[in-house]
Design a protein around this nucleic acid. Structure first.
Length: 110
DNA sequence: CACATGACGCAAC
DNA sequence: GGTTGCGCCATGT
C-alpha cells in the first residue's frame, strides 16, 4: 500500500460521493466528476473508478458518460441499447446520431 | 524499465 | 458536424 493508493482511494470516494448526487434526467461527464472532486485532468481515472466501483444502488453509474455524449462501451451495461433505455426512461434526450443531447442534459450543480 | 491499453478530453485540421 | 494526434493518469504485461 503506497501513498498513491491512498490518494486514489480519496479520489474514488469523492467521485462516488459526487456521482450519487446526479439527479434523474441529468448526466455528468467523467472529467466533470474529476474536476468536482478536486482532481482536474483525472477523467480517465474517473472512468476507471466507475468500472471498479462498488455495486451500490445509490450510485447511478449509467448517468456518467463521455463529454461528447456517447455511452459506455457496449460490454458494460449489457449493451449500449440497454444503457440508452435506462437513460431515456429517466428523461435523457438522445440525438439522431445516437448520442445524448448534452446541451440539455448535462448536470449543472448549484 | 519500456510499452500498451482504457467508462477521457482537447486542440487542430 | 467528423477524424487524428497528443496529453493525461493508473494498470497490466
Amino acid at each position: 500500500m503506497t501513498i498513491y493508493n491512498l490518494c486514489m482511494n480519496e479520489f474514488e470516494d469523492r467521485v462516488y460521493g459526487i456521482a450519487r448526487l446526479i439527479p434523474k434526467g441529468k448526466v455528468a461527464s467523467y472529467g466533470q466528476l474529476a474536476e468536482m472532486a478536486g482532481y482536474p485532468r483525472m477523467a480517465r481515472a474517473a472512468g476507471r473508478a466507475m468500472r471498479n466501483g462498488p455495486s451500490d444502488e445509490d450510485i447511478p453509474y449509467h448517468r456518467v458518460v463521455n463529454k461528447s455524449g456517447d455511452l459506455a462501451p457496449g460490454h458494460v451495461f449489457g449493451g449500449k441499447e440497454r444503457q440508452r433505455m435506462i437513460l431515456e426512461s429517466e428523461g435523457i434526450v438522445f440525438r439522431s446520431n445516437g448520442r445524448i443531447d448534452m446541451k440539455k442534459c448535462i448536470w449543472k450543480p448549484d
